[in-house]
Design a protein around this nucleic acid. Sequence first.
DNA 1: CACCTTTCTTAACTTAAGTGAACGAGATGT
DNA 2: ACATCTCGTTCACTTAAGTTAAGAAAGGTG
Lengths: 192, 192
Amino acid sequence: MNNLLFDFISKYISLTEEEKNAIISLDLFRTVKKGTILLREGQKSKESYFVLQGCIRTYYIIDSEEKTTAFYTEMEALTPPCVTTQTPSEYFVSCMEDSILLVSNSDMEAEVNSKFPKFDIMCRMLSEELLAKERIDFDEFKTSSPEQRYLNLLQKRPDLIQRVPQHQLASYLGIQPASLSRLRARIMEKKS
Amino acid sequence: MNNLLFDFISKYISLTEEEKNAIISLDLFRTVKKGTILLREGQKSKESYFVLQGCIRTYYIIDSEEKTTAFYTEMEALTPPCVTTQTPSEYFVSCMEDSILLVSNSDMEAEVNSKFPKFDIMCRMLSEELLAKERIDFDEFKTSSPEQRYLNLLQKRPDLIQRVPQHQLASYLGIQPASLSRLRARIMEKKS
DNA sequence: CACCTTTCTTAACTTAAGTGAACGAGATGT
DNA sequence: ACATCTCGTTCACTTAAGTTAAGAAAGGTG
């Protein structure tokens, strides 16, 4: 488990044994049962999540309907906007599968970062990278139709389509469940 | 001009005179004429832009059609993904109005950051903040219809609707120019 | 195993966006 | 001043998504 994490970190910075031990001593790992709600609308939170195994999702409740906007799977990190802005959360975060997460607290991060400035640099690199990714995803979303978005997802994250319920995928693609179902049928037809 | 910049920076960190002078001596300000293309598809670049006055936009050319995905106006910053990923750019950046920009180079940034670690911290804070904003924007986009997106824009960035051509706004909203025109007419009708 | 709930699909109908073309207004250039 | 080009709007038509409802399939629970 530790190795997964250190391999990830090594893409950004190299750690001394001392630093590794400092991380381990923080005791960040947490196993979380499927269905657990990690964050609720209206809550304040300082927690960030890094998925080592499993899947978490973010969703809004709008007109008493769940609107799923993102899934985070292995080696992906989520810092909810409410942690950054220090305001009550606009959305929910829930656990889609029994998962192993690394949960960090922003106060604790600040402390570690001041002790090891290296971590600040890693955080900067990571959030710059995530921002670049997010922008590209958003751009792709804007410039393509629902059908193209589904086909794109099929290419880039085929696992998601298997492990996640269709109606959640639908709102992730910005459409209604019935539309996704129809769209899939349309694609099947074309193939044959 | 310098004051605009230092006021912005002061939201994140406080600078000594020495640090302010270091920034000034970098000579980052550039006035750019409307229509100037700052970055082209396929180019590699290390430049980030911070808009002090004016407006820049990012757009793709897909099937020989321009697809505008973002506008950056006063006090907004753009680091194109290609700078972060060090790959050729997927898109163009052009200047919508005669503008005053702050243009920085990532090599130069690295140098300054190693001299003044404070800047690293600011960069981290800034990109975390931008990431949070981008996620919220993306979520809003996913969970709303073209008409809602237009009304939302009318609320949040009414200036954009005035200063930017409709057909570029259309693709920014993820629709065709004719659809935007129709949608606007529909809204006008409802109001009366 | 029977029951209930959730999920997915299908269908019929409504509504809105995509498309292609035409038009007029305004800007641009020679 | 005239021709040209760009831009926004409008129209008619096509295509796809939204909506509502019904039913089948899958999953979980007592």
